[in-house]
């Protein structure tokens, strides 16, 4: 299950943080752990892809503030 299109970087990063925290805190359940690990790898991949986007877009509002 790849992260959905509308999932943004912030959400993906947050989920990755939660997974890391889960492993640090308990993570005794191996089956759950394996699932979470897989999900973590997907999220990390998604985040890295997002980070490789080169540009910030700048859009100047058409409405004139400068008179």
């Amino acid at each position: 299950m790849a992260p959905k299109k509308e999932v943004n970087f912030a959400k993906a990063f947050e989920e990755l943080e939660q997974i890391t925290e889960w492993f640090e805190r308990d993570g005794a359940d191996l089956d759950e752990g394996l699932k979470k690990f897989e999900r973590g790898l997907e999220l990390a991949k998604f985040c890295k892809e997002k980070l490789s986007e080169v540009e910030n877009k700048v859009e100047t509002i058409k409405k004139k503030f400068v008179g």
Partner: peptide
Amino acid sequence: LRILNNRWSGVKVIHADVRVQGKD
């Protein structure tokens, strides 16, 4: 914008072009 671009990407900047001094 220079520092923003150096550090991060994928952000949309919506710029309101205003006077920052003078009567307006």
